[in-house]
Design a binder for these strands. Sequence first.
DNA 1: TTTAGTACTTGGTATTGCAAGGTACTGAAA
DNA 2: TTTCAGTACCTTGCAATACCAAGTACTAAA
Lengths: 110, 110
Amino acid sequence: MADYTTDNIKSQMRKGLLEYCTLLCLSKGEAYTSEILTILQQADLLVVEGTLYPLLSRMKTNGLLEYRWQESPTGPPRKYYKITATGEEVLKELNKEWGAITASVNKMCG
Amino acid sequence: MADYTTDNIKSQMRKGLLEYCTLLCLSKGEAYTSEILTILQQADLLVVEGTLYPLLSRMKTNGLLEYRWQESPTGPPRKYYKITATGEEVLKELNKEWGAITASVNKMCG
DNA sequence: TTTAGTACTTGGTATTGCAAGGTACTGAAA
DNA sequence: TTTCAGTACCTTGCAATACCAAGTACTAAA
């Protein structure tokens, strides 16, 4: 099993949750991209660098996130992202939406 | 609320589940496109014709679905889609995946 | 000064969703 | 007969997105 088709559908299922999970992650406190990446990957979100950077930029542009630069002792400075008040409100909406979605899917299963 | 950004993220969350829910729908018996469309829309999947036709074709090409033509008393003939044995196996995988995803998300919430 | 490690950014390509328009069949109205 | 409305299928063109790969830039150690 786990052929190309199955993997493709699976990854699509997870892709759609990327923004939501990123907001969830940052609602617990600020973090920079590599940390976010690791957290999302540990939740099996299968996300990679080239996806996450543009995604964070979009969310910043849309006012859900903000960032500050912070020097790093071991390399170039880091962008620490933080959720905004708007982001918090959107997250509340998305939490409701997630509940509705699981209800929808479970209804289709039953 | 419910501004452009929120709606966009919401729709992405649901989009990723289209193939899965289509398989779920057809695992209950065959149906033609308009019926599938109605069922998915009743589950709030926000799908439209121009999305569903190519999607069903892709799934047929990938061996998940098959169809037969059937005359209609009230118009042109209909394509009745049915899940294949391969589709059933993929669906089992996706059911497991859905369980894993909800677990992942809920872990991130907690 | 070169190399390795960390971190951010940016093309190019492929996939996908959707709006809009097109084809074709049936039956009823003009 | 012709025209129209309803049903059903399909395609085209545009925009958004994900990902791979490469590029830039900073630090520290060899």
